[in-house]
Design a protein around this nucleic acid. Structure first.
Lengths: 126, 126
DNA sequence: TACGGTACTAACAAAAATGTAAGTAATGGC
DNA sequence: GCCATTACTTACATTTTTGTTAGTACCGTA
């Protein structure tokens, strides 16, 4: 999200890893709040302020940054209404909608994983 | 991977977002090299040195960190053979193997997304 | 006794992501 | 004129993630 030095190992490695479509994909949804935002928008348009209310501790700055990134990556469409006070609506694009089913599977896997891990931890106790 | 201050907003927010199984899941595979490592191990066991050769610019430190995290999260099994020089083999766990099909779908989506985005960028040129 | 090979570890530095706090524009209603 | 509302932006601080460099243990072999 900020400007980057070219040719740093950091940048070179990023290029290398995103040659893989999967890593590329995960990078697109990798921000801290992006997935949750996509989830909230899966069934409805929402205004900036409405999204903000969904996440008690998010700052306006972070919400803005994540939405901008999603917009840049073609996953969210932003519509500004020329009113005062301003009204801005966010909705998913077709590409993001295609992600939603995969999304659900990942979520299921996550839940299963969480349970298993917790059980393992209980077992670990002496 | 390092020790964290409790109760920083950063940590609080992390707890909040990982209440969602999906975000939880994505966090597990979120490190820079984790997905690529899982990919390489999808069909075979590999030794530390073999993994290292798969990623030209990875440092030993990063490879170690990512493998440790995957091991902690129950996605990779580490087997040490008591030999000199040492031999250590890494393989996926059942849970990681269950992730692989989802993985493939995500990868497909990523490829599609990459193509679309590139086309959009071409179109954007005046 | 020195050396090679493997799989690391430790101390430090750079870069990125996230959070804090304050401020902005625009305009209709009082 | 002043205030409230909304969706931001800016400068800065904190925290995490990633990279750099140098080193370690082990033991069979030369």
């Amino acid at each position: 999200m900020a400007a980057r030095k070219e040719n740093s190992t950091y940048t070179l490695n990023e290029k290398f890893i995103t040659e893989c479509d999967l890593t590329y994909a995960v990078n697109k949804i990798g921000g801290r709040w992006k997935i949750l935002i996509i989830d909230k928008l899966a069934n409805q348009k929402l205004r900036f302020g409405e999204l903000k209310k969904e996440f008690p501790n998010i700052t306006e700055r972070m919400l803005t940054l994540q939405l901008r990134a999603l917009e840049q990556d073609g996953l969210v469409k932003r519509t500004v209404y020329a009113e005062v006070p301003p009204r801005v609506e966010y909705e998913l694009t077709q590409m993001a909608l295609e992600f939603v089913p995969i999304f659900r599977q990942l979520s299921e896997w996550g839940g299963k994983h969480r349970n298993l891990t917790q059980k393992l931890k209980i077992r670990d106790k002496p």
